[in-house]
Design a protein around this nucleic acid. Structure first.
Lengths: 156, 156
DNA sequence: GATAATCTCTACCGATTAGATAGAGTTAAT
DNA sequence: ATTAACTCTATCTAATCGGTAGAGATTATC
C-alpha cells in the first residue's frame, strides 16, 4: 500500500501540471481536499528534492520545476514513501543486507521479489505526471489495462 | 516493503517443503533464525487459513497441507500482510472506495497503480513455494530477470 | 514602513501497526 | 503422571502514519 501522503503528493503535482501558472498551497489544498498543513510539508519536501519551486510572500505559490513528462511516479514515491523495493536487500536507493538470509545470492525469496520489484519499477519509472493528465479514455472498450501508453501526449 | 512476518512465513513454508515430513516449531525457528514465539503465531495463522496442518503433544509438529506447487506467494502474503494492491480502491480482497477521488473510474493515479498491482499479482500468484525450492541457478548468464518463468518445474 | 498574505521550519500528538514476548491452557506419547 | 509439544490471548515497546500547531521569514502592496 502506498501512503496517503504519496497520494496527496501525486494529486498536488497533477493539479500543478494542469494549472499553467503557479498555485498557492491553500488553492491546491481546497481543490484536492488535502489538509492544508499536511500539504505544506509535502510540498516543502518536494521542493527540497528539486521537483517544485516556490515563491514566498504575497503572490507566492508553488510551481513545477520541470515539465510534467519528466516527473516520474517512481521519483515522487521514492521521495515521499521511500524505497519501492519490497525487500531492503533489493532496494537501489537504500540497500541493506538481510541479516538472516545468509546465502544472499541464493536466497529464493529474494529472487521472487526481485521480479516484483522490477515490474513495479518498470511501470513507475516510465509513467509520468503528464501521463496522468490525459482525460479519461472514451472507455468504449478500454478493457486492457497494460496495453498502450500515450507518453507523448504532454499537453491536455 | 513486505513485512518481516511475511518473510518468516515464506521461509518457514520453504523449510517445511524441503523437509519431507513434519517439523516442530522449535526446529524451524532454530534452522531459520526466527523468534520462536513469533513463529508460533505465524504458523497458527497459516493453519487457520488451511495452508499447514499440525499435530499436538509429544511428537507434534507442522506440515504442509498441500503440495508446495499449490501454495502461491500471493496467497501467503495476503494472509500475513493483507492486500497486495497499493491502493484500497484496487484491492480485490478488501476493496474500499477512496473517499476523495470522486471521479472514480477517471482517477488517473488509480489507473497507474492498477498496472503495478496487476504486474505484482501476475508474479506473486504464479510463483509457488515449489519455485523457491530450486537451488541457485548456475548463474552462467542468468542476467535477464523477467524473462522466463519455470512454472512447470514443480518438483526439485 | 506597516501590514497582510504567503511560504518555511520544527516540534508535537494520538492512533495504529510491527515485531515481538509472556504465560496459562490443551493435547498426546511415554 | 509427566513431559513435550501445539493453542490461544494478552501485553509490551518502538516506530510509523496522518495530521496539527505555531513561531519565523519573505514579499507585494498601501
Amino acid at each position: 500500500m502506498i501512503s496517503q501522503k504519496a497520494r496527496y503528493a501525486l494529486r498536488a503535482l497533477v493539479a500543478l501540471a494542469r494549472a499553467d501558472d503557479s498555485m498557492m498551497i491553500a488553492e491546491i489544498a481546497d481543490q484536492q481536499h488535502i489538509p492544508r498543513k499536511f500539504l505544506e510539508q509535502i510540498l516543502l519536501d518536494l521542493k527540497h528534492h528539486g521537483i517544485v519551486a516556490s515563491r514566498r510572500g504575497r503572490l507566492g505559490g508553488y510551481g513545477l520545476l520541470m515539465p510534467p513528462d519528466q516527473i516520474t511516479f517512481g521519483r515522487v514515491l521514492r521521495i515521499v514513501d521511500g524505497p519501492i523495493a519490497p525487500l531492503p536487500c533489493l532496494s537501489r536507493i537504500a540497500y541493506r543486507r538481510c541479516a538472516d538470509c545468509q546465502t544472499e545470492t541464493a536466497c529464493e525469496i529474494r529472487r521472487v521479489f526481485a521480479k516484483v520489484a522490477d515490474s513495479a519499477r518498470d511501470v513507475l519509472d516510465r509513467t509520468t505526471i503528464a501521463d496522468a493528465l490525459v482525460e479519461e479514455v472514451p472507455a468504449a472498450d478500454a478493457a486492457k489495462p497494460g496495453a498502450k501508453r500515450p507518453s507523448a501526449k504532454a499537453r491536455a
